[in-house]
Design a protein around this nucleic acid. Sequence first.
DNA 1: AGCTTTCGCTACGAGTCGTAGCGTAATGGC
DNA 2: GCCATTACGCTACGACTCGTAGCGAAAGCT
Lengths: 207, 207
Amino acid sequence: MQSRTSAARPGRPRSAAAATAILAATREVLVEVGWSKLTLGDVATRAGVAKTTLYRRWSGKNELVVDAVAELFDELELPDRGTLAADVEGVVLQFAAILARPEAKSGLMAVVAESTRDDALRQRIGESIVDRQKRLVLEGRARAQARGELPPEPDAAESARTMDLIFDVIAGAVVHRALVSAEPVDATWARSFTALLLNGLTAATTD
Amino acid sequence: MQSRTSAARPGRPRSAAAATAILAATREVLVEVGWSKLTLGDVATRAGVAKTTLYRRWSGKNELVVDAVAELFDELELPDRGTLAADVEGVVLQFAAILARPEAKSGLMAVVAESTRDDALRQRIGESIVDRQKRLVLEGRARAQARGELPPEPDAAESARTMDLIFDVIAGAVVHRALVSAEPVDATWARSFTALLLNGLTAATTD
DNA sequence: AGCTTTCGCTACGAGTCGTAGCGTAATGGC
DNA sequence: GCCATTACGCTACGACTCGTAGCGAAAGCT
C-alpha cells in the first residue's frame, strides 16, 4: 500500500516541470493545428523535451489530450447564487466558458469520439472530466433541496437516476449548442434554457 | 444555371455504383478500426476502387465520413403518435437508434470535433445531418400546436429561437447520454426525459 | 561511494499521405 | 463513325509521422 505521492521509489524522479510544460504545449498545438494534425513530435519540441520522454509518460495521443484538457476543468466551481434558477445558469455559463476555448472544443470532442472504441479511455475521461462537472450539478441540487425548491428524494437509486438524467440534459444541451449549432452560450441563452428546464415545455416560455 | 442533376457535361460520367460502394466501405472500416485509424487506402481497397478515384470525389477523410454517416439519417421519420409526449419519445428513440450504431458513434463525434476548425465542414454537417434531425422536431411542434398542446407562437424570430433551444436540448441530451455517459437510451430513459422536458424540474418527477 | 531511474539525443523500419503519370474505358457532340 | 472530354485503375514517388531502441549523462536515494 504505497503512498500515491511518488512513494519512496529509488532513482531520479520525474520532472514535474516537464509534465506541466508538455500539457501546456499540448493545448497550444491543439489551438493551432487541431486534434487530427497534432503530432507528438510537435508537442515534444514545443515543450522543450525529448519525444521519448513524452512516450514514457503517456501511452498515446488520446491519453495526453485527455490530461491536457482535463486541467481546464480545474477552475470549475459554483458559487451559491441564492436560487435554483440562478445556480443552473451559473453551471451553464461555467461549462460554456470552458467550451468556448478552442483547445477544449477541438480536443474534448475528439477524445470522446475515440472513447467509443476504448473503454479505458472512456473511464479516464469520466474520472478526470465528466465527474468533475457532475459534482457541480449534485451540489446545486443539494442546495435546492435545502432551500425547499426541490423535494428530497427518499429512494437513493431513483435519485441517482434522475441526477444522471439532469446532468445529461444540462451538459448535453450546452455542448450541442456550443459545438454542433456553433452558437454562443451567452446569458440570454442560459436564461431561456433554465426556464425551460425548470418549468418545462408546456409552461409559458416568456417570463 | 445548369441543372444540378449532372447537367449535360461531356465525358465519361462518374460511376454511381462506385459512390455507394465507397460510402458503404467507409462505414465498414469505421466499425472495424474507428475514425482515427481509418485510412483512405483501406476504404478504397475494400470498396474495390482505386485510391485516386476516392481522392477525385472527396477532398479528404472528414468530408468522406460526413457523407458516409449522413446516409444513416435517411431513415429518419416521425409517425404521428397522437400526443406531444409520445412524439417526443419517438424522436428520442429515433436519434438513439442511429447513435447506437458503431459507425455513427465513432464517425459523427469525430467530424464534429474537426468542424470546430473548419467552417466548410461544419456547414456540410449542418446541411446533411443536423437539419434533417431538426426537421423532425419542427414537425412535432407543428402537430402539438395543431392539437392545442402548445400555444402558437406569433413572433417568428422568437419562435425560431425557442426551436433552436428545444432542438439543442433534445439532441444534446441524447448524444450525451449515448456517447459520454455511455448508457443505453431505452424506452425507460426516453419516458423520463420526456416528462422532464414537458413538465420541468420543479414538477413531480414520478408520474 | 553505488544503485536506480529519468533525460536528451540520434537513428531506424514501418506505415500513411496526397499527387503525378500513364494507358484504357465510357460518354456526348458532330 | 470519329473525336474531344472526362472518369477509371494502376504504379510509383517524396514527405511525413509513428513508436521504439540504444547510448551516455544527470539526478535522486541509501
